[in-house]
Design a protein around this nucleic acid. Structure first.
Lengths: 219, 219
DNA sequence: GTTTCGGGAATTTGATCAAATTTCTTGAAC
DNA sequence: GTTCAAGAAATTTGATCAAATTCCCGAAAC
């Protein structure tokens, strides 16, 4: 393991682990995050853990409480509305930009990832769904050549993750948004505008589900 | 100074100082930022400096080089385009939301800040212009009640700061964007849409100036 | 041009201090 | 005698620092 891990610093690894814990809902909204707890769980030193927490706090994935603790933020209706506004602006734009730069090889890869999404939905495996759905979107977005927009999208997904997991766990993975076929068809047709609309629909569907869960008092 | 500074942790103070150094252009684009340099300059310990750097890196205000250094990023034309897209989406929205929540007292305060902006322009004091222009925009934005959008706007301004300073220093502070009168008139008329348009124009003007400087090879 | 070596910077650890939370105790009121 | 509350001790957690280690970069030697 030396050749692999020597190059990549511990604080990077720790950041990645903690980020994925949040992104894929392994931490619940409202749950407190302690430095010493992560030192134990992630088997890392104190400084790397502190830095990972600071980074994720700056990205909005963690929220500082009044006392000097941090916790996974709850997604209030007001926050969801703001999140929806930016996601529905930035992510269709990313899709449109990516649409102009797609290669057959990338479309093939996206098709493969979508297969994993479908399989996860059919099998009711929530974790697999969350991870491959994320992979699908960001493999597409990264083809856009717009790293700043991708950064913003990442930050927004981080704020979304915990609540999405709760909704999935509640309603099962069967009725989850999957407009990916629509998106893949637009890619094959070389229609960037249609691709943007498909992604927009996909996002809108996910947001609506969370909104419904909020209105029902589920989260 | 004990009663004041005791409550607010050193890493917060250090973060604020470094952030303002970037935001108000006291660090030039491309300039490397070292931990030990900041330990000397800011008279802080190593841990607070490290955390400040990580936070600002996560916000896009600093860019990690391949080796383990960080530097103030250069604003390339491609980045400026992405920045412009998001700023022109988010900030007019913030203005519109704020427009619906304005009080006469806040309008008065904004009028006062705008006076400082004007005075700085007339006096050719670039630093004062940058600080009071920032104060004007964010005093308005914070009235929106949309903290997530404000966060995003902050991050975007951080990426903008260094280059804006260079442009100001180059062309003097006389031809700087100031559509604030337009904005104040819209506030007094209670016209949120017009306020949003005024802010949009203000931003567009600033972006155009940087774009021109880029095309002229000035930065 | 390639390799090796040394200086300097970043990373990491562990210890120590400070703040906050929880628990326990004690005393008064009912 | 029981209950409640205020306060103090103990525990947990965060903040900071200094030393040791690792790593990168450039200069000198080959």
């Amino acid at each position: 393991m030396d050749d692999e891990t020597r190059k990549i610093p511990s604080h990077e690894v720790t950041y990645g682990r903690l980020r994925d814990m949040i992104l894929f809902g392994r931490l619940e909204p409202g749950q407190p995050v302690t430095i010493q707890g992560l030192v134990r769980d992630l088997d890392a030193g104190m400084t790397p853990v502190r830095e990972a927490i600071r980074r994720l706090t700056a990205e909005g994935a963690l929220l500082p409480q009044g006392n000097r603790r941090v916790a996974v933020p709850n997604l209030t209706p007001a926050l969801l509305e703001q999140l929806a506004f930016v996601r529905l602006t930035v992510e269709p734009k990313l899709a449109e930009l990516a649409g102009a730069a797609l290669t057959p090889a990338l479309i093939e890869r996206l098709d493969g990832i979508d297969g994993a999404v479908d399989a996860a939905i059919k099998g009711g495996r929530v974790s697999d769904y969350l991870e491959s759905n994320h992979a699908f979107h960001f493999a597409l977005y990264e083809a856009s050549g717009a790293p700043l927009l991708v950064d913003i999208a990442r930050s927004l997904w981080l704020r979304f993750g915990p609540s999405l997991r709760v909704v999935c766990a509640r309603y099962g993975a069967t009725a989850l948004p999957d407009r990916h076929e629509e998106a893949l068809a637009a890619m094959r047709a070389g229609d960037a505008k249609a691709l943007a609309r498909a992604i927009e629909n996909d996002i809108q569907q996910g947001i609506d589900q969370i909104r419904q869960a909020q209105e029902a008092g589920e989260i």
